[in-house]
Nucleic acid binder design. Structure first.
Lengths: 218, 218
DNA sequence: GTCTATAGCCTGATAGAC
DNA sequence: GTCTATCAGGCTATAGAC
C-alpha cells in the first residue's frame, strides 16, 4: 500500500465531506418535518413557513435546500416511490415465486402505505392539482408495473392463474384492490395498522379472488 | 271557498315567496360555483373569495348565505349524501331484488361519483382535515348502509349469496371495491366516464366475485 | 343584501447584508 | 447558509354605511 505523508489521518481538507453530510441531514430533517405537517394538515396543507417554524429557521433559509414548495413535494414523491418499490422487492425475497411472492409484496406495500400515509396519498391519490411529479421522480412506477407483471407471469407459469393474468389489466385490477382498501382505511380509520380495523383485513380475501378472475386451465 | 277582497290576485304581499326563491337560487348558484372551483383547484382549494369573484359579488356578501367556509363544505356534503342515496334508490326501482338490484345501485353510484367528482371526494375521501360533517349532513350514510344490507339480505334470501353476506362486513367489502375503482379513476384518469378507461370497467368483474366470497349453499 | 373598509392573519418567493 | 426586510399577493371574517 503506497502512502504519502500523513497517511494516518483522513484526506486533507475533509471539510467538503462534512459539509455535504450536514447538508444532507438538514434536507432529511426538512422532509421529515414536511411529512409531519402533511399528517396533521393534509397533503395540501404543507407550507414552507410551517416547516421553517418547526425547524427553528427563517423561511428564506429553506430556499438554500429546495428551490420551491413543489420541489419539496417532488422529492417526497421521488423518495416515496423508491422506498415503496424497495419495500415490495425486499418482501419477495425467499418467497415462492408467483402468487405467494405477489401476496407478500402487496402485504408489504399496504403496511408501507399505512406507515407513510401522507406520502402514499401524494403518490397515488394526487390531491395537489398544481403538482405534477417530474419524469425522474415518476420513473420507479414503471418498474413497479414490471414487478407486478413478473410476479403475475410466474403465477401463470406455475399454473396458479390463467394466461390472461399475464396482462396490464391484471395489474390494474390488483392496484384497484389495494387502493380501495387503503382509501377506506385512510378516510374512515386514520391511524390503524395493517391487519387491523374493518378494511385492511379484507385485502387478502380480495386478492384470493384472483384465481377466480383468471382461472388456470385446471 | 271564503275569499276576502282581491281574491283574484295571489296572496297579499307575495314578496316573501319571491324573495325566498331568489335566495334559494343564489344559494344554489354559490354551491355550483364552489363545485367548479373544487374541480379545478382540488377540494381543499375552495375559497370563498374565488366564489365571490366568479359570482360577481364581494366576498362579505357571501356571508349573508353561509356563515363560514366550513358551512359551504357541509351543505355540499349534505346535498351530496342525499343525491347519492336517491340516485342509488332510483336505480333499483323495477330491478330484480338481490344481486341485480345491488349491481344496478352500485353502477349508478359509480356514475354519480364520476359526474360529481369533487363532492364525492369531499364525502368519501375526506381531504379536508379541518372539516367534520355535521351529524345532520352525515345522517344519510346510515341509510346507505341499510340500503346495502337490504339488497344483500335479498340476495341471500334468493340463494344468490351465502348467509354470511348478510353482514356489515360485506357492506365494507363492496364499498372497498367501488372506492378502489373510483380512486384509481380520479387519480389517473380524471375526466373519464363510467365504463370508460382502464379502471371503471373492472368494477362489474370485482362485484362478480361476491358469490365466490360468500358462496351460497348450492 | 349589497357595498367599502379593514382587521388580522396566512403564504411563496426574492434581494441583499453578513 | 443564515439572517432581515420586503414584495405581492392570498385568505376568512367582521363592522358598519347605505
Amino acid at each position: 500500500m503506497a502512502s504519502n505523508r500523513a497517511s494516518a489521518r483522513p484526506p486533507a481538507p475533509a471539510g467538503p465531506d462534512r459539509r455535504a453530510r450536514r447538508r444532507q441531514e438538514t434536507i432529511d430533517e426538512i422532509l421529515g418535518i414536511a411529512v409531519d405537517v402533511m399528517s396533521e394538515d393534509g397533503v395540501t396543507g404543507l407550507s414552507l413557513s410551517e416547516v421553517a417554524r418547526r425547524l427553528g429557521i427563517q423561511p428564506p433559509s429553506l430556499y438554500k435546500y429546495f428551490p420551491s414548495l413543489m420541489a419539496v413535494y417532488d422529492e417526497l414523491f421521488r423518495r416515496g416511490q423508491i422506498e415503496h418499490l424497495a419495500t415490495m422487492r425486499a418482501a419477495m425475497v425467499g418467497v415462492e415465486p408467483g402468487l405467494p411472492a405477489l401476496a407478500a409484496a402487496l402485504d408489504a406495500a399496504g403496511r408501507w402505505a399505512l406507515a407513510n400515509r401522507p406520502v402514499a396519498q401524494l403518490m397515488f391519490w394526487r390531491p395537489v392539482p398544481s403538482f405534477e411529479p417530474s419524469a425522474e421522480s415518476f420513473a420507479p412506477s414503471v418498474e413497479l408495473v414490471a414487478l407486478h407483471r413478473e410476479a403475475l407471469a410466474d403465477a401463470v407459469a406455475a399454473g396458479q392463474l390463467g394466461a390472461a393474468a399475464d396482462s396490464d389489466e391484471a395489474v390494474w385490477l390488483i392496484s384497484t384492490m389495494i387502493s380501495g382498501v387503503l382509501t377506506q382505511a385512510f378516510a374512515n380509520e386514520p391511524g390503524t395498522q395493517w391487519g387491523q380495523g374493518r378494511f385492511t383485513p379484507l385485502f387478502p380475501r380480495l386478492l384470493a379472488t384472483l384465481p377466480v378472475l383468471y382461472p388456470p386451465h385446471r
